[in-house]
């Protein structure tokens, strides 16, 4: 990379920390530290909500996924707008008026301390490991393209992020999120322009669409009802609705965001911003991945996008095998390019399948050689494009955007972990009446502590692909159950504390069994968890209620 790109990255890191801290006020009070004194405008909260959800996994993984399969992943977000409408009508005014610091505080008011503690504990367990993955996944990719070690990359992402989160509280997180989302969107738009300019001028837009369409990448909506298929219209709309209701309604990393809004109305508008913008933004990111595919139809792509593995295998004991693959790959690419330029759809498809199959063989070779069974080369597609084809300065901007995505998602989770730890455990169970200064100081310690723990998880998760899979599965089974217990509290007046607690336990158990013994796609786990908790909770409440 050019010195100017490094300068852009360093300038971004310095700016994000200093400006985050400069904008923090009243952080010596608990309300200022965790809720920004309920002072933020709706647009800042809305952009912060979106930034927290847009992690580097989204930026790097989604573009890679679109490169390989096209627009199908958009179906994951189909439930989001409806979820935002439901939440802006229900829990947003509810939490705001209740004056709570965490979503789980409400569960004690409605049920008992046991239910609150269990729900908050589930959040802490899930989010701690998820924070590790949010740091690990981009670190593995960024370390590979910049030639750094994984631990060093984790530290470079984590240290500035922990600094502004610990000292600036949720205000620093929200205001840096606002800047980070602009850095991300500007970077992605720049990439789209460069990609579009990279397509030969003699190839018309119509022919380009025809070629991409032939590969199935433009088939975004799948109306088949198949529970085993991960992304369909139905899994996205129904399963996704429950996931988004749970994520935005019961997850402290999101609830804390809209509790910082000036008023109930501002909080509602902040969520509705996502309802309008999230799907178009996600389409932009997916379109970037599809455009990278088109770009590499006409420009020679590397057989493996992870250049480190490419060099290792090309000079290792299986070099001859790899070299033979490379020659077959070069020939298949040349024939695919010729077919694309001639507009020969059938020949293009045949050669595209050959290119994909040879890449598959190369990836299998990496998996055998490195022992990393989870290795996914698609995650390196976009970063490799950025470092090899973006103009000077824009490469730095895009790498900064990857840092921004990693930091914004991680900072939101870190601040939420600290608030749940201090409000739901430390202040509730251990030190019940201390000064604000005391609670803010231990909150800073908790933030640094969780940050360190996340770094350790990130450094170990990066070597164990299976751990990442376990974490993802875990996230999908606890979300639905949490939603179920909030539904019991908000939608009914007859649910009891005993019903809520054992309903939550039953929901978790059922989803655990479903997740590990059936092939039902994970989006449906959210619906199953919510329904089981609600049904079991109501049944136990009815049975345990004293007869009059």
């Amino acid at each position: 990379m050019h010195a100017i790109d490094w300068l852009v990255i360093v300038a971004y890191l310095v700016w994000i920390v200093t400006d985050g801290l400069r904008r923090s006020h009243r952080t010596n009070e608990v309300a200022g530290y965790f809720l920004a004194g309920r002072s933020l405008p709706w647009w800042a909260v809305g952009l912060s909500v979106m930034a927290t959800q847009l992690s580097a996994i989204t930026l790097v993984g989604t573009t890679g996924q679109a490169y390989a399969t096209g627009f199908r992943f958009i179906q994951f977000y189909l439930g989001l707008p409806l979820a935002m409408i439901i939440l802006s009508l229900t829990v947003v005014p509810f939490f705001h008026r209740a004056g709570v610091y965490t979503a789980y505080e409400y569960l004690e008011r409605r049920f008992d301390v046991r239910t609150r503690t269990l729900a908050s504990l589930l959040f802490l367990l899930g989010r701690t490991f998820s924070l590790g993955v949010v740091l690990a996944a981009p670190s593995v990719v960024i370390s590979s393209i910049l030639g750094w070690s994984v631990p060093l990359t984790v530290i470079i992402i984590a240290v500035p992020m922990v600094l502004y989160t610990a000292f600036g509280g949720v205000q620093a997180v929200a205001w840096t999120d606002v800047k980070q989302i602009f850095v991300i969107v500007t970077g992605v738009c720049a990439a789209v322009v460069v990609l579009a300019l990279g397509i030969p001028s003699e190839v018309s837009i119509g022919r380009t669409l025809d070629l991409v369409g032939a590969t199935g990448r433009l088939r975004a909506i799948d109306f088949r009802f198949d529970l085993r298929e991960t992304y369909t219209f139905w899994s996205g709309l129904i399963g996704g609705l429950f996931l988004m209701l749970s994520y935005f309604g019961c997850d402290q990393s999101q609830v804390q965001r809209y509790l910082t809004a000036k008023s109930v109305e501002e909080a509602r508008h902040s969520l509705l911003l996502s309802a309008y913008v999230k799907i178009p933004l996600q389409l932009l990111i997916l379109a970037t991945g599809v455009l990278v595919f088109v770009f590499y139809v006409f420009q020679p792509p590397p057989m493996l996008f992870n250049r480190v593995h490419d060099r290792e295998i090309a000079s290792g004991p299986r070099a001859a095998e790899y070299d033979a693959l490379q020659r077959r790959f070069d020939a298949a690419f040349a024939e695919r390019k010729t077919a694309a330029e001639a507009g020969d759809r059938n020949a293009f498809l045949d050669h595209d399948r050959r290119v994909a199959a040879i890449r598959g063989e190369a990836v299998a070779l990496v998996r055998e050689a490195t022992g990393d069974r989870q290795y996914a080369d698609v995650n390196y597609v976009f970063p490799t494009f950025v470092t090899t084809h973006m103009p000077i300065g824009l490469t730095g901007l895009l790498i900064a955007a990857m840092f921004a995505a990693a930091m914004s998602a991680a900072a939101g989770e870190l601040s939420a972990l600290a608030s749940a730890t201090i409000i739901d455990f430390y202040r509730r169970h251990f030190v019940k009446s201390a000064t604000d200064a005391h609670y803010v100081n231990v909150s800073k310690l908790a933030t640094v502590g969780w940050g360190l723990f996340a770094c350790v998880v990130a450094m170990s998760a990066s070597n164990q692909g299976s751990l990442i899979e376990v974490v993802n599965r875990y996230g999908s089974f606890f979300y639905g159950s949490l939603l179920g217990v909030f539904m019991l509290g908000i939608l009914t007046t007859t649910a009891t504390a005993v019903g809520a607690f054992y309903g939550l336990v039953a929901g978790m158990a059922v989803v655990l069994v479903v997740a590990f013994t059936t092939s039902i796609a994970f989006l449906w786990h959210n619906l199953i968890g919510a329904v089981v908790v609600f049904a079991v909770g109501m049944a136990i409440s009815r049975a345990s209620r004293p007869h009059s």
Binding site: M84, P93, L218
Partner: peptide
């Protein structure tokens, strides 16, 4: 509480339009 019914309808219409456009686009070029 402010009545946001018109905003909700606009959001749902926008989503329906995006889904329809994506579906038609996919059918047109596959």
């Amino acid at each position: 509480m402010e009545d946001l019914s018109a905003t909700y309808v606009k959001i749902l219409l926008l989503e329906a339009a995006i889904i329809l456009a994506l579906w038609l686009f996919g059918r047109m070029y596959s």
